[in-house]
Lab assay of single mutants.
Amino acid sequence: GIPATNLSRVAGLEKQLAIELKVKQGAENMIQTYSNGSTKDRKLLLTAQQMLQDSKTKIDIIRMQLRRALQ
């Protein structure tokens, strides 16, 4: 079985993952909103794209940590 310490770690990672998935969803929504907007929305679009990139990276890292914890 999986050690108890790993189980609480997994629960924490799953919570983090859920949050990051919401951030990713929000960033994707912002990108959709701003991509057909005016030029003043360009900065917001770039910010949203950066957020999305960061979020995807975090999600990958969390998933990797989850896999390790579940081994």
Rank of each mutant, 00 (worst) to 15 (best):
S35E: 10
Q65G: 02
G1N: 11
L21N: 03
L66Q: 01
G37E: 08
D54A: 12
I2Y: 09
A27Y: 12
A11D: 08
Q53L: 07
A11W: 05
A69I: 14
A69W: 04
N36T: 12
Q32F: 09
E28Y: 06
A4W: 02
D41R: 03
M51L: 11
I19H: 12
S8Q: 12
D41F: 04
L17Q: 00
Q50A: 10
R42A: 14
A11E: 14
G12P: 03
L70N: 04
K43V: 12
G1T: 11
S35L: 13
L66T: 01
A48T: 02
L44V: 03
V10I: 15
Q53S: 09
K22P: 00
T5F: 12
V10T: 03
A4V: 14
L7G: 10
A11L: 10
T33H: 12
S38Y: 09
I31R: 01
R68C: 14
S38D: 13
A48C: 03
Q53Y: 07
D41N: 07
G37L: 04
T5N: 13
G1I: 11
V10M: 04
N6Y: 03
R68K: 11
K58P: 00
N29I: 13
L52Q: 01
G37W: 01
G26C: 15
R67A: 10
L52K: 02
D41S: 04
S8R: 07
V23I: 12
R9K: 11
R67Y: 10
T33Y: 14
L17S: 00
S38C: 12
L21W: 05
T5E: 13
L70I: 07
L66R: 01
S35A: 09
I62A: 01
G26K: 15
N36Q: 11
L21K: 03
A4D: 12
A69G: 03
I62Y: 02
L46H: 08
Q49V: 13
L13R: 00
L66P: 00
Q50M: 08
L45C: 05
A4Q: 13
G12A: 15
R63H: 05
I31A: 02
A18P: 00
P3H: 11
Q49I: 15
K15N: 05
I61W: 14
Y34L: 14
S38W: 04
K58W: 03
E28V: 07
I62R: 00
M30Y: 03
R67D: 06
K15C: 14
T39Y: 09
E28T: 03
Q25H: 06
R68E: 12
Q71A: 11
T33I: 15
R68F: 11
A48M: 05
S35T: 12
K24S: 05
L17H: 01
G12E: 15
T39L: 08
N29F: 12
L52N: 00
S55P: 00
I62C: 01
A11N: 04
A18F: 07
T39E: 12
E20V: 07
S38N: 09
A11T: 07
P3F: 05
A18K: 08
G37F: 02
T33C: 15
K56Q: 12
P3A: 08
G37Q: 06
L44A: 07
K40T: 10
G26I: 15
S35F: 14
L52I: 03
L46P: 02
N36A: 08
D54Q: 06
G26P: 00
T47A: 14
L44I: 05
M30L: 12
T57A: 12
I31L: 05
N6Q: 08
I59D: 00
S38F: 08
I19E: 13
S38G: 11
D60P: 01
V23F: 10
P3Q: 06
M30P: 00
L13Q: 00
L46I: 12
M51Q: 05
A27V: 13
I19P: 00
R63C: 14
I59A: 02
I59R: 00
R63F: 08
E20P: 00
I19W: 08
Q53C: 10
L70K: 11
K40A: 13
K40Y: 13
G1F: 09
Q25K: 11
Y34D: 01
I19L: 12
L46W: 06
K24R: 07
I62D: 00
M64S: 08
Q71F: 06
Q71G: 08
K24V: 05
T57R: 15
T33M: 15
L66H: 01
V23P: 00
E28I: 11
L7V: 12
T5I: 11
V23T: 06
S8V: 11
Q25F: 05
A4G: 12
L21A: 02
D41Q: 04
T5D: 12
Q65A: 11
A27R: 02
A48Y: 09
K56T: 11
D60F: 14
M51P: 00
Q71S: 11
K58Q: 05
Q16T: 03
G37S: 09
K24I: 07
G26N: 15
Q53T: 08
A27D: 00
K56F: 04
S55L: 03
I31N: 01
G26Y: 15
L13K: 00
G12T: 14
A69V: 08
K15Y: 06
N29D: 13
Q71C: 14
